[in-house]
Amino acid sequence: MSDPTPATVDAELGTIEYADVGSGDPVLFVHGSPGGSDQGELMTRFLVAAGRRVIAPSRPGYLGTALTDANSTPAAQAELHLALLDALGIDRVAVMCWSGGGPSTYLLASGHPERVSAIAALAAVSGPFTFKGGLEDRLLSGRLGPWLVDEMAKHSGRSLVKSTLAEEGDLGTAELKELVEQVWDDPTKRSFVLELSATVAGRKVGLDNDHRQFPELPDLGLAAVSAPVLLVHGTADADVPPAHSDHALAALPEAELLSVDGGTHLAAWTDPTSDAVQARIADALSAG
């Protein structure tokens, strides 16, 4: 199957929306905060191009996966991931997660080790986490968010790229300018950033739930994860501190850290070394 149009399956914990793209060995992609199945389709295009099938669900509260009392916690979301795999007849899967997709990914792998062959955790939350918030986040998550992003993408794309990269990285003026130029001059990276903005705008219900859940995260069972894990983190990440990957590296039984010097929260897609980073991710997901 290679249709990015979302489909749904019904599970005990609620209806799950997901995209199913590409063909080959399956990879489950767990999106960030905010996000959705569309973000998964965007962030994994390099895997589809490399011959992998990607299943990208929307976590509860995002797009077509409704948030309920029963599925609000990361532990329940891990069970939703499992239910989706069962519905699709997938016994064992590699998992790639980004940012706020970390908690449910680790809980899936620790609770059901026989189902997860390998993990690539990109700037992933690995323990209690408090969002930094701010005016920009409130504007994007509100009802006007999608309209604002669409207008900026149409009429001020370069400014949207700059504001996105500035928000995602702790970069100096010269470093930010250089990265913006590099991304803007690369059609693939430019398109990625412009499309990404549409996958985070207006996602208030799911984001509010993540804001409630993440500061009080329970033990994610990192020590019980048997799958090999590639951790990828930019040293200039302004959203999820690199300490989250350092913590995971120390706790996971089999893990490797790929630290991207000067990389932002989007290092795997926008850094000058992103092609090499993506190749490492693809190799890691073929392990196990």
Results as ranks from 00 to 15, higher is better:
Ser58Ile: 06
Ser58Phe: 05
Pro60Glu: 13
Tyr62Asp: 05
Leu63Gln: 08
Gly64Ile: 08
Thr65Arg: 03
Leu67Ser: 05
Leu67Glu: 10
Thr68Ala: 09
Asp69Lys: 07
Asp69Trp: 03
Asn71Val: 06
Asn71Ile: 03
Ser72His: 14
Thr73Lys: 06
Ala75Leu: 07
Ala75Trp: 00
Leu80Gly: 02
Leu82Ile: 01
Leu82Asn: 00
Ala83His: 03
Leu84Asn: 09
Leu84His: 08
Leu85Cys: 06
Leu85Val: 12
Leu85Ser: 07
Leu85Gln: 08
Gly89Ser: 15
Ile90Glu: 02
Asp91Met: 01
Val93Asn: 00
Val95Thr: 02
Val95Ser: 00
Met96Thr: 02
Met96Cys: 06
Met96Trp: 00
Met96Arg: 01
Trp98Cys: 09
Gly100Lys: 03
Gly101Gln: 01
Ser104Pro: 05
Tyr106Gly: 00
Ser110Gln: 02
Ser110Thr: 04
His112Trp: 07
His112Arg: 12
Pro113Cys: 06
Pro113Lys: 03
Ser117Lys: 10
Ser117Trp: 02
Ala118Val: 08
Ala121Arg: 01
Ala121Leu: 05
Leu122Tyr: 01
Phe129Trp: 15
Thr130Glu: 10
Phe131Ser: 09
Glu136Leu: 11
Glu136Ile: 15
Glu136Trp: 10
Arg138Val: 11
Leu139Tyr: 08
Leu140Asn: 11
Leu140Trp: 04
Gly142Tyr: 12
Arg143Asp: 06
Leu144Pro: 03
Gly145Thr: 13
Gly145Lys: 04
Pro146Trp: 01
Pro146Val: 10
Glu151Val: 12
Glu151Gln: 08
His155Pro: 03
His155Lys: 10
Ser156Cys: 13
Gly157Val: 15
Gly157Phe: 12
Gly157Cys: 15
Gly157Lys: 11
Arg158Lys: 12
Leu160Lys: 04
Ser163Ala: 11
Thr164His: 04
Leu165Glu: 05
Leu165Pro: 04
Ala166Met: 09
Ala166Asp: 13
Glu167His: 12
Glu168Phe: 12
Gly169Met: 05
Asp170Thr: 13
Leu171Asn: 07
Leu171Gln: 08
Gly172Cys: 13
Gly172Asp: 06
Thr173Val: 10
Leu179Thr: 15
Leu179Asp: 06
Trp184Ala: 14
Asp186Met: 04
Pro187Tyr: 12
Pro187Ile: 14
